[in-house]
Design a protein around this nucleic acid. Structure first.
Lengths: 196, 196
DNA sequence: CCTACCGATCGGTAGG
DNA sequence: CCTACCGATCGGTAGG
């Protein structure tokens, strides 16, 4: 039995993460992807069955990374606000360590067909629910203000977190811990003075 | 002189706003665009010179709408925090009344060539600066907390505002004024209790 | 605004 | 993993 594989299937998925995240799914051709790995576009089909499938795989990997980070964060003991802080740090870890998968997951789901897109959106809703639940717990234990709407507040906080990839540069003045601290300070204390 | 125009150039731009926003620039073909207007893809070229130019025009329209709204908002008298509130309401007006132009401006600039993209990003920075300046003014007049970093806080607030199109539905339970109020409450007061 | 095209590129297959 | 393709579609032009 002869086999020609210089690259593994994982190599293909990782290259797809990079290119889908940088240029977008529709702007990335199979030939682009092949070039990234030093082989012909048509050769990719010995590793995958279609370009769509590849997108599904990248996006699912992204979803999995976020879910796993959230599961770890939820083991943090403490108040609801502290659990929320752990969720924020876990989210940033994924965004900063797996840029490609995270960006593709966050920005390219619209390229999926209806069924797959619905599935991904439901999974994303499940992730958002974990933020909501931490806030609800925080209202219960007094660490979060009682008049907060956990659904809206989760959306606002996740909007901040999911936009980080659009502007944050790790080589800039702000390190990851400072970034997390700044986001938490903004979300927990706001920017208005008492004497407003 | 005979002319065949059933649609104006503006019709083409408005159709492009819709489709570029819904499917993305690369996923929209000139034939899709023609179908939207009831004519052939090739006929569009009597109105425009290239698909790229059309994207530039849509994006510039989006930028113009945001800049104009900010200019109006800045005429609001009052504290820095109040000017910031006016900017927030103006931003939401654009996002909700010009969905297509706003979404294309916010999400499709990556499809521009380097030179155009840089120009658009610079213009976007100018818009962000207006938020920063309102915050700085607020620190001066005591309406914004003195320890706030206006640059980061502007990014966080704009992340929330620019993500609105991803989840908000006008026909839902929250009207536009309530949405603005919720965002401002989150940004100004945060969600943490004093006894955290 | 339509008809009739153009060369280039797309995702993907057959066969080795 | 390569070679040699395939039909479909792309942005765009010429000429009326």
């Amino acid at each position: 039995m002869t086999t020609y594989a210089r690259n593994s299937r994982l190599d293909v998925v990782l290259a797809a993460e990079r290119l889908f995240a940088q240029r977008g799914f529709h702007a990335t051709s199979m030939r682009d992807l092949g070039r990234e790995l030093g082989l012909h576009g048509s050769s990719l089909y010995s590793h995958i069955t279609s370009k769509e499938d590849l997108l599904v795989e990248v996006i699912d990997r992204g979803a999995e990374l976020f879910d796993a980070a959230a599961a770890r964060a939820e083991q943090a003991a403490g108040s609801g606000a502290e659990r929320l802080a752990a969720l924020v740090r876990g989210h940033l870890d994924v965004v900063l360590e797996h840029v490609g998968a995270a960006r593709t997951y966050l920005n390219e789901a619209h390229a999926l067909d209806d069924q797959q897109r619905r599935r991904v959106i439901e999974r994303r809703d499940g992730y958002e629910r974990r933020f909501r639940e931490a806030m609800t717990a925080g209202i219960g234990d007094g660490s979060i203000r009682a008049d907060v709407d956990p659904r809206l507040a989760s959306i606002f906080l996740l909007s901040i977190l999911n936009s980080v990839e659009r502007w944050y540069r790790p080589e800039g003045p702000l390190d990851r811990n400072q970034l997390a601290a700044e986001i938490l300070e903004f979300a927990l204390s706001g920017i208005g003075s008492r004497a407003r």
